[in-house]
């Protein structure tokens, strides 16, 4: 499973703060929410392929409206994340979360709450934060960071 997971880790990746500001800037380029939705959907379409056999019950997160599958592993001290959803808007949100949190250390993650969600306005504009399960996904990522890397 490890080998196929996510994109290669680039050493000089920007910080979580940079990733969040990049997202905020990108969404700020659009004049209205109709266009932001379309952009979010386009990000969702570009999510790296998630193998069908990873869509197990254990990896599934229940949302009221759509399904999310989240897989993680530790690459050294870095948390690698891979996720997908059957709904495109949720997939777009996943793409944003992965840009921010994939490949970070537990300390980096735990000291950087997802401020971009409120900055961009996802919390106010996505009909039903609960419906998209955005908070559930954030909680799941933070839970894995808190649990940390399994000790050898």
């Amino acid at each position: 499973m490890t080998a196929a997971l996510a994109q290669p880790l680039v050493d000089d990746r920007s910080s979580i703060a940079d990733a969040q500001s990049d997202l905020i800037e990108e969404f700020d380029l659009f004049d209205d929410w109709d266009d932001r939705y379309e952009y979010l959907i386009s990000l969702g379409r570009k999510l790296p392929e998630f193998p069908e056999d990873w869509k197990t019950e254990a990896n599934r997160h229940y949302g009221c409206q759509s399904q999310v599958w989240l897989v993680h592993h530790w690459n050294g001290d870095r948390l690698r994340l891979s996720a997908t959803s059957d709904a495109l808007i949720v997939s777009g949100l996943i793409a944003c979360l992965l840009r921010v949190y994939d490949g970070r250390t537990a300390d980096e993650i735990l000291s950087a709450p997802p401020a971009f969600i409120a900055e961009i306005g996802f919390d106010r504009h996505l009909s039903g934060n609960r419906g998209t399960g955005l908070q559930t996904m954030v909680d799941a990522i933070f839970k894995r960071a808190r649990e940390g890397r399994p000790q050898p």
Binding site: Y37, Q65, S66, L88
Partner: peptide
């Protein structure tokens, strides 16, 4: 199309 995406877009 997923029903939840439809619901969100028509809400707009």
């Amino acid at each position: 199309a997923h029903a939840s995406d439809i619901g969100t877009l028509v809400d707009r």
